[in-house]
């Protein structure tokens, strides 16, 4: 290519990238850098018009954050949600994927559509149904009553509010993992599984010693994807419990949102950054595990 042609191509390329660079720079890169900077200042909602007049406070926001019982509670709640929610969602999705993969050839698409439907629906909309189901005199407790069990007031109990949200999240997100796991199962070499069966391995042994090890990369991919979503959970407590009762369902993102609402933008940024570091660390850890076993 001649120098003139090369220069012309560079100009064309810049013209092609210009709209993206403008939006990406202003609404992604600037906020990304600002959020670090803001977390070291006492930026408040009233400083929006004069962002350069704020005071640098060093690590004060972070020390105050970890001294705040509500923040510690929010981080613990997030850990609870993730540590119980991810294994539950993955187990249900894997069981359904295995069932669809082994037994069913007809109607497989119909089942997949059914299981995936909650994924495309708004949490705010499905929360209406879930709130109703979980009411003290709602359908769930009537069902339990029929079995002689007195159900709790699920969403107003410090013990039961979080498990209720976890089950709801598992219900809504299992479809994503099901699709990924099903694709993984269908890509497994059929000869290997058949050979194990020919050697007399039962269904459980085949699952435990052949399918599960081969499926490990797919499972870890699913775990990474879903943990990024679960670590940021916000909509479920916002519409179901308002973070209550007594902060029992306050999540890290919800805490950030609340601090933002109070006008404490510096604190909100610091909290968001702590969560970011956790998300990054969890992702790196999961990818390490993925590599180590390959």
């Amino acid at each position: 290519m001649t120098a003139a042609a090369r220069r012309r191509q560079a100009w064309t390329a810049w013209a092609f990238t210009l709209p993206f660079v403008a939006v990406f720079g202003l609404f992604m890169l600037v906020p990304l850098v600002s959020s670090v900077l803001m977390s070291f200042t006492d930026f408040r909602g009233s400083d929006v018009t004069t962002p350069w007049a704020v005071n640098v406070v060093g690590l004060d926001q972070y020390t105050a954050l970890f001294a705040d019982p509500a923040f510690r509670r929010a981080m613990l709640n997030t850990g609870y949600f993730v540590l119980v929610g991810i294994p539950l969602t993955m187990a249900v999705a894997l069981a359904l994927a295995l069932a669809l993969n082994t037994g069913i050839t007809r109607f497989r698409t119909a089942f997949r559509v059914g299981f995936y439907t909650p994924v495309v629906t708004s949490v705010v909309a499905v929360a209406v149904v879930w709130r109703f189901v979980l009411q003290p005199d709602g359908p769930l407790n009537r069902l339990l009553g029929g079995l002689g069990i007195t159900g709790p007031d699920w969403l107003h109990s410090t013990t039961w509010a979080m498990p209720s949200l976890i089950v709801m999240a598992a219900w809504r997100n299992m479809g994503t993992l099901l699709v990924i796991f099903l694709a993984g199962l269908q890509a497994l070499p059929a000869e290997v599984v058949e050979a194990a069966a020919a050697d007399g391995a039962g269904p459980w042994q085949r699952f435990r010693h052949v399918i599960l090890p081969l499926l490990r990369p797919t499972l870890l991919l699913g775990a990474v994807l879903i943990s990024v979503v679960y670590l940021q959970f916000f909509e479920e407590p916002y519409v179901m419990t308002r973070g209550g009762p007594l902060d029992a369902t306050l999540s890290a993102t919800y805490y950030t949102f609340n601090q933002f609402g109070f006008g404490r933008y510096g604190t909100a940024s610091a909290a968001a950054y702590v969560l970011f570091v956790v998300i990054a660390a969890v992702s790196v850890l999961q990818f390490r595990l993925l590599r180590a076993r390959e």
């Binding site: 906020p31 990304l32 959020s35 929006v48």
Partner: peptide, 13 residues
């Protein structure tokens, strides 16, 4: 990058 990280400064912008 998760959305929650940029959300506050994005609002300022």
């Amino acid at each position: 990058v998760p959305g929650v990280v940029t959300f506050v400064p994005l609002f300022v912008v």
